Simulated scan of single mutants.
Amino acid sequence: MTPPTTLPDTPARDLGAGEPGARFLDLAAAEWIKLRSLRSTWTAYGATALAVIAFNAGTAYDTYSYWPARSAAERDEFVRNGIPLQEAFTANAAVVMMLALVAVGAVTILGEYGTGTIRTTFAAVPARRSVMAAKAAVLAAVTTAFGAVVAGASFALTQAILGARDAGVPISHPGALALVLASALLAPVCALTGMAIGSVIRRTAATMTVSVVVVLVLPLVFSDDRHWSAVAGHATLYQAWLRLAEAGLPPTAYPWTAAGAWTVYAVWAGAATALAVTGVHRRDQ
Results as ranks from 00 to 15, higher is better:
residue 144 T to H: 08
residue 135 K to M: 08
residue 58 G to M: 00
residue 165 R to W: 09
residue 120 T to R: 06
residue 162 L to D: 05
residue 83 I to D: 10
residue 4 P to N: 10
residue 71 S to D: 14
residue 146 F to L: 12
residue 42 W to M: 09
residue 126 P to I: 12
residue 47 A to P: 01
residue 164 A to T: 15
residue 200 V to Q: 10
residue 271 A to C: 11
residue 113 Y to F: 15
residue 20 P to L: 15
residue 14 D to H: 02
residue 144 T to P: 07
residue 273 T to F: 03
residue 61 Y to E: 13
residue 123 A to T: 15
residue 101 L to F: 09
residue 78 F to H: 05
residue 284 D to W: 14
residue 49 A to S: 12
residue 21 G to S: 10
residue 256 W to A: 03
residue 195 M to W: 01
residue 216 L to N: 01
residue 128 R to C: 13
residue 53 I to D: 01
residue 6 T to Y: 09
residue 121 T to I: 02
residue 263 T to A: 15
residue 32 W to E: 00
residue 64 Y to T: 05
residue 62 D to N: 14
residue 151 A to F: 00
residue 79 V to R: 11
residue 97 M to Q: 06
residue 246 E to T: 15
residue 212 V to F: 15
residue 257 T to E: 09
residue 54 A to H: 13
residue 243 R to I: 07
residue 65 S to C: 04
residue 95 V to P: 11
residue 121 T to F: 00
residue 69 A to V: 05
residue 68 P to R: 08
residue 255 P to A: 03
residue 103 A to R: 04
residue 16 G to A: 12
residue 74 E to Y: 06
residue 61 Y to G: 12
residue 168 G to N: 10
residue 29 A to P: 06
residue 109 I to F: 02
residue 219 P to Q: 07
residue 256 W to R: 10
residue 237 L to R: 03
residue 273 T to Q: 06
residue 131 V to M: 06
residue 158 T to Q: 01
residue 285 Q to F: 13
residue 19 E to K: 09
residue 176 A to C: 05
residue 161 I to N: 00
residue 214 V to P: 00
residue 67 W to L: 06
residue 6 T to K: 09
residue 46 G to F: 12
residue 231 V to I: 14
residue 35 L to K: 01
residue 266 A to E: 12
residue 13 R to A: 04
residue 128 R to I: 09
residue 149 V to F: 05
residue 23 R to S: 14
residue 175 G to A: 10
residue 155 F to C: 01
residue 121 T to S: 11
residue 204 T to F: 02
residue 232 A to Y: 00
residue 199 S to V: 09
residue 5 T to L: 11
residue 118 I to Q: 05
residue 210 V to D: 03
residue 174 P to M: 12
residue 78 F to G: 02
residue 68 P to M: 00
residue 30 A to R: 05
residue 160 A to K: 02
residue 5 T to R: 11
residue 141 A to K: 01
residue 79 V to G: 05
residue 15 L to Y: 02
residue 149 V to G: 06
residue 116 G to I: 04
residue 143 T to N: 04
residue 252 T to V: 15
